[in-house]
């Protein structure tokens, strides 16, 4: 009540306000311009969105009822979905040794020297910046159409992503245990195996499950470019205008993706990562 009447004029003056700098204002202006160009460059149009309702209705008309023929649609769909799952699983698992080795070199907590550290980080960032679809196209050319190309694509891309995520997780762990062992004469490999890795294990496993989840979803897209699995079947259904078949496959995909996501989330919650 009395606060409103109190006189604070004897208190020290507050420091001067900090307004955004001209550089900051320039950057904001630049960002706005970029968005205007992007809006035009991508033909964003509310009108087509509204008219698209009709196209959507036509599609649904053709898609429903779903084609649930067991021998020609449902069974091949489920088998292909399993292949998609396998691609995601193997792509993740086979990248573990590479991601672990390179992640350890690319983490300040475990790297033996800065040259290796920088070199490995560059390799990882290259692997990460090449989309898995591009890897898949390359490997489809190399080893032919089929799931194996998808596995290879995921191994390469996932090594880049998981290697970096793991390196960061190791850097974020408390480095005290590592220092204690190092003081006692343990070498770099020993401190990694007995301090850094066991301390960061829950985080590493959590990231692994997260990547598995992402990779299963990626392997769907890889199928679209010929790398096997249910994506491949969806692609064929589109090409032959069998929308009722495609809708069945999409339904299978949804079930698969949700199931993997749930399992991965549950396990991550259980291990507290």
């Amino acid at each position: 009540m009395t606060a409103a009447l109190a006189d604070f004029s004897t208190a020290p003056k507050p420091p001067a306000r900090r307004w955004p700098s001209p550089l900051m204002l320039g950057l904001i202006a630049l960002l706005i311009v970029a968005h205007v160009f992007a809006w035009q460059g991508t033909d964003v149009s509310i009108k087509s969105l509204i008219e698209g309702r009709k196209g959507m209705a036509d599609f649904l008309d053709e898609a429903i009822p779903l084609d649930l023929t067991w021998s020609t649609v449902l069974r091949p769909g489920l088998e292909a979905a399993l292949v998609t799952l396998y691609i995601g699983l193997l792509g993740t698992t086979l990248s573990i040794p590479f991601a672990l080795g390179m992640g350890m070199l690319a983490s300040r907590a475990t790297t033996p020297n800065t040259v290796l550290y920088q070199a490995t980080r560059s390799i990882l960032s290259f692997l990460r910046s090449v989309p898995d679809v591009v890897f898949a196209l390359i490997f489809v050319c190399a080893v032919g159409l089929g799931p194996f190309a998808g596995v290879l694509a995921l191994v390469f891309h996932n090594t880049g992503v998981m290697g970096k995520l793991w390196a960061e997780a190791m850097e974020e762990t408390d480095l005290g245990p590592r220092d204690v062992l190092r003081i006692g004469g343990a070498n770099g490999v020993q401190t990694a195996l007995h301090a850094v890795l066991p301390t960061s294990l829950p985080q590493l496993v959590g990231l692994l499950l997260y990547r598995f989840d992402v990779n299963v979803r990626s392997s769907l897209v890889l199928g679209l470019v010929g790398a096997g699995g249910i994506g491949f079947l969806i692609n064929e259904a589109i090409k032959t205008f069998k929308f009722d078949v495609m809708a069945t496959h999409i339904l299978i995909v949804l079930v698969l993706v949700i199931a993997v996501d749930q399992v991965s989330a549950q396990v991550r919650k259980r291990i507290g990562a």
Partner: peptide
Amino acid sequence: DPTKTAMVFQQIHLVKRRSVLDNVCAGALG
């Protein structure tokens, strides 16, 4: 010979997930 000097810290710095025995054994890694 780094094994001749050991250090203990306020933050203790054990690997909490590993067993007490494994933590003690780790002192001998050098």
